[in-house]
Every structure is written in structure tokens, then in C-alpha cells.
């Protein structure tokens, strides 16, 4: 079996032109903060390999998967069918029950130490993890096996990265991050959910450079989480000029002034939302007149709330 596929050719068959493909590579280079001259190398890296990826769902809402399929450069279908070998993913896979479990077992066995595990969701640990099971196994057992045998585990979303909403006080199921349960470091693409572009960029970084991106002390890739929202906010000028929304619906809101006084957590939150925005640049929270809730910070459900109050 020849595994060195020519991705541009296969993408062309799928209706993606070489120009589209290079545009994707250029976008990835931009997000990753690489010089544009790296774009051809990205194209090569993506074309050369089709690594096996196992995507696990634990205690979560599937919002991260939904966010992931909002990617357009490349489209989700092109990633799933042409760029990676997505061997296991409960929300998209055709196989069910025993047949799905067989796929997971075989993938882990045949690719031990070589596959990437993407984890979505936190892991309940109370009562030996009885609060979450798939195919009879607890999430704790699954995580230790599947994440434990992966080349690397990439956590997507606040739940997998730091416990998420179910771990908010009083944390009824004693939910924990994946890293805390498997006892190993993970790359943490934070956010509730993370932006699709940041998820794709992390995977491309791995394919291009053969290693995971540089991260901050919370495991978050610096290319995305190296910036304070406040520093790149288009409303920053209003903050400096003392022009604030004092109540929703007021004159300041109409004029697009700073949301700090109605609770904006942009000054404490690291993410690239103001730079890349959401849904192909359609909008982002502060653009829609809503304060940032700090969703890419660990424990934000407790530490950033109440969300509409500036502490």
C-alpha cells in the first residue's frame, strides 16, 4: 500500500484547487506565526503523511467537535478524508457498538505509540468513574489505555484541558482534566469551545515540524494563546478613553464602547479571538456587544463568574 499520497491531486479530485490548498497552507502559516515562505513546506508536510487520529468523547457536550467541523481551509471533509486517518470519532463514524469498539482496540494495538489522540471532555472520577461509561468501560479506563498509548494527546476544549463546566463548584462527579487522570502532559487547545482554526493549526504544526507547538505553562500553544484579548481588542481605544458600556442597551452599547464595566474578562484572557474571530471572521463575542467570559482560562466557570460583573 502506497501511503505517500499526493494530497493536492487528491484534493483536486474533491473539487479543491491547488490554489485553495496553498491558501489553506498560507492561512495556517499565518496563524502559526510562521513566515509565508513556510507555506510550501506545510503543503509538503500535509501531503506526505496521513497519520492515524483517535478522537475520544468523555464528559462533554460535543461543542468542540461541532466547532472543528466549522473549518473551511481546509474543509472538515478534506481533513477527515484526505489529511488524516480519523480511525475513531463517535460523532461521525459509521460503525456502532461492538464494531466500533473493535476499531478502537485494533487502532490502539496496531499503532501503539504512533497515533495522535484528540480528547474532548472531562473525566468523572468519583465512585471509580461510574458516572461515565462507553461499552461498559469507565472513561478513566479508556483514557488511561487510549491516551496512554498515543504518541501525543491533544486536548480540545476547556473540559478536557481543565475539567470544564462539570468540574465547576461543587464538581458533583469529581470531574478532572485528561492530563490529571492519565498523569501525563497534554497539549491544551483551550476554549469553550476552541476556535476550529486553532485546532487545525495545531495538527498542521505537528505534521509540518514533527513536534507539538511551543506552549505556555498551561500547555496552550503560544501561537494562539500568547496574546491577551484586551491587547488586541478593537474596543481598546474606548477603554483608554474612559468610554464604557454601563448597562446593556445604553448609548455606549449603541456606539460600540468598551464592555469592561459590564463584566468583560478580556483583560485576563489569553486567546486570539480578536485577531482571527469566529466562523470565518463572521463575528466574535465583543463584536456582538457581549463581554468576553474568559473561556480559554482554566476554571473560568468559577474564577471569572459572575460573568456580567467586573470583580
Amino acid at each position: 500500500m502506497d501511503t505517500s499520497f499526493d494530497v493536492p491531486e487528491r484534493l483536486a479530485l474533491r473539487g479543491v484547487t491547488r490554489r485553495d490548498f496553498m491558501k489553506f497552507c498560507g492561512l495556517m502559516a499565518a496563524i502559526l506565526g510562521l513566515p509565508m515562505s513556510m507555506a510550501p513546506k506545510i503543503a509538503h508536510a500535509v501531503a506526505k503523511k496521513r497519520p492515524t487520529v483517535v478522537w475520544l468523547h468523555f464528559a462533554e457536550c460535543t461543542g468542540c467537535t461541532e466547532s472543528f467541523i466549522r473549518t473551511t481551509y481546509p474543509w472538515a471533509a478534506d481533513i477527515i478524508l484526505d489529511t488524516i486517518d480519523l480511525a475513531y470519532h463517535e460523532t461521525v463514524m459509521a460503525a456502532a457498538g461492538d464494531q466500533a469498539e473493535e476499531v478502537l482496540e485494533k487502532t490502539v494495538k496496531d499503532n501503539k505509540g504512533k497515533y495522535i489522540c484528540i480528547a474532548e471532555g472531562a473525566i468523572p472520577t468519583k465512585d471509580n468513574g461510574a458516572y461515565g461509561r462507553i461499552h461498559g468501560k469507565t472513561f478513566m479506563e479508556i483514557a488511561k489505555d487510549v491516551c496512554g498509548n498515543a504518541a501525543a494527546t491533544i486536548c480540545v476544549g476547556n473540559c478536557a484541558c481543565s475539567g470544564g463546566v462539570q468540574a465547576a463548584k461543587p464538581n458533583p462527579t469529581e470531574a478532572k482534566s485528561v492530563s490529571a487522570v492519565i498523569g501525563k502532559g497534554t497539549v491544551n487547545i483551550e476554549g469553550c469551545p476552541p476556535n476550529a482554526d486553532n485546532m487545525v493549526a495545531t495538527v498542521v504544526h505537528y505534521l509540518l515540524l514533527g513536534k507539538l507547538p511551543a506552549c505556555d505553562d498551561l500547555g496552550r500553544p503560544l501561537f494562539a494563546y500568547g496574546y491577551l484579548i484586551h491587547d488586541n481588542c478593537p474596543r481598546r481605544g474606548h477603554f483608554e478613553n474612559d468610554e464604557f458600556v454601563k448597562e446593556f442597551g445604553d448609548e455606549g452599547a449603541l456606539k460600540g464602547w468598551c464592555l469592561y464595566k459590564v463584566g468583560c474578562k478580556g483583560p485576563e484572557t489569553y486567546n486570539n479571538c480578536p485577531i482571527i474571530k469566529w466562523n470565518q471572521g463572521t463575528n466574535w463575542p465583543i463584536g456582538a456587544g457581549h463581554p468576553c467570559i474568559g473561556c480559554s482560562q482554566p476554571k473560568f466557570w468559577d474564577e471569572m463568574s459572575p460573568f456580567y460583573v467586573q470583580k
Binding site: 500500500m1 499520497f5 479530485l13 478524508l81 470519532h89 459509521a94 464494531q99 466500533a100
Partner: peptide, 15 residues
């Protein structure tokens, strides 16, 4: 081409 690659990804082992 996808099926021939042997890497069936999310379409593996279905009914």
C-alpha cells in the same frame, strides 16, 4: 481511491 487506500477512517467496520 479512498477505499483502495485501506485507511477507511470513519467509514471503517460499518454495516
Amino acid at each position: 481511491a479512498f477505499v483502495d487506500s485501506g485507511q477507511l477512517g470513519p467509514f471503517a467496520n460499518a454495516y
